[in-house]
């Protein structure tokens, strides 16, 4: 009952021996994720967190059979790390790094086009299938296995929604943090298509924010293709135009990317749009008739 990651996921960590990589790899190991090793160029052949370190992703994949990677590499080198993972054939690449230049992501997007890999992020909290696999930086203990799929551009709003669900006794199938940057590997639409096809996902929470029109694109598809209940929220209803609200992609510019337009498109698609994030859990409960 999940998408993309489960107990068979074999995770490698890029930027494994750094502070962030070490901290979150440890958290993932403690959560029960199968972490098979990591990559730090120049430290190949050593051990870290009782697992092998490799100089290249290709070596790591060859030796460990890793099928997913999480990237904790600083912004100037993160795009290169994504491409290295893709070139090594890692099927799922999750990039946590915040602050990658747009120009680098334009190149990455081109590079990934003819590769059979999926990128989640960058600038995202990661992806989790409760009690099976945690990839990223989210606090694992708030999640609970179940049947609600969650897709969100924001980390803490994901936690907010999940915290409410778990408190109501409603578990999650898979939660995907797609990231707050203008160019991301997996969009709302991609994530919703995956969750819609998963028989064990019974309802979907879609959390968006100002900037771009990915929410509108997803809403249009939902209208024609999704019969599962979808509950949504858009952050930034009071954000001033022309200012970047923390996330590089969260900006209303030239009259586009407004919260009201997204909410209207979602409502028109039959999505239950919450006025505030405080009611997300309750609305899910109502839509499911629990």
């Amino acid at each position: 009952m999940s998408v993309l990651v489960n107990k068979n996921t074999r995770l490698l960590v890029q930027g494994y021996t750094g502070a962030q990589g070490t901290f979150h790899a440890t958290q993932s190991i403690n959560y029960g994720t199968t972490v098979v090793g990591g990559v730090t160029p120049g430290k190949g052949g050593t051990q870290h967190l009782d697992r092998p370190v490799f100089n290249t992703v290709a070596d790591c994949v060859k030796e460990t059979g890793a099928n997913a990677s999480v990237i904790f590499v600083p912004p100037p080198f993160a795009a290169d790390s994504i491409m290295e993972a893709a070139d090594a054939g890692v099927a799922l690449i999750v990039c946590i790094t915040e602050g990658i230049p747009v120009r680098d992501m334009i190149a990455v997007k081109q590079f990934l086009k003819d590769k059979n890999v999926r990128l989640i992020g960058p600038n995202c909290p990661g992806i989790i299938t409760p009690n099976e696999c945690r990839i990223g930086i989210m606090p694992g203990h708030i999640f609970k296995p179940g049947n609600i799929g969650v897709v969100s551009r924001s980390g803490t709003l994901t936690y907010e929604a999940v915290g409410q669900l778990s408190a109501l006794g409603i578990g999650q199938s898979t939660c995907i943090g797609i990231g707050g940057d203008p160019i991301i590997g997996t969009t709302h639409l991609d994530a919703i298509q995956l969750l819609n096809a998963d028989p064990d996902t019974h309802a979907i929470i879609m959390v968006g924010e100002i900037g771009g029109n990915n929410e509108e694109i997803a809403a249009a598809w939902i209208k024609d293709n999704v019969t599962k209940p979808v509950i949504g929220f858009i952050a930034g209803q009071t954000a001033p135009e022309g200012r970047r609200m923390g996330h590089a992609g969260a900006i209303v510019a030239g009259g586009s990317g407004k919260a009201e337009d997204k909410m209207a498109a979602m409502t028109a698609a039959g999505i239950t749009v919450c006025a505030t994030p405080a009611e997300i859990g309750q609305k899910v409960k109502e839509r499911l008739g629990l």
Binding site: T156, L157, E160, G180, E209, A235, Q237, T238, A239, A250
Partner: peptide, 11 residues
């Protein structure tokens, strides 16, 4: 978190 910060202004 940026998303929660925006949502807090909203609420």
């Amino acid at each position: 978190g940026a998303g929660l910060a925006m949502a807090t202004m909203d609420i």
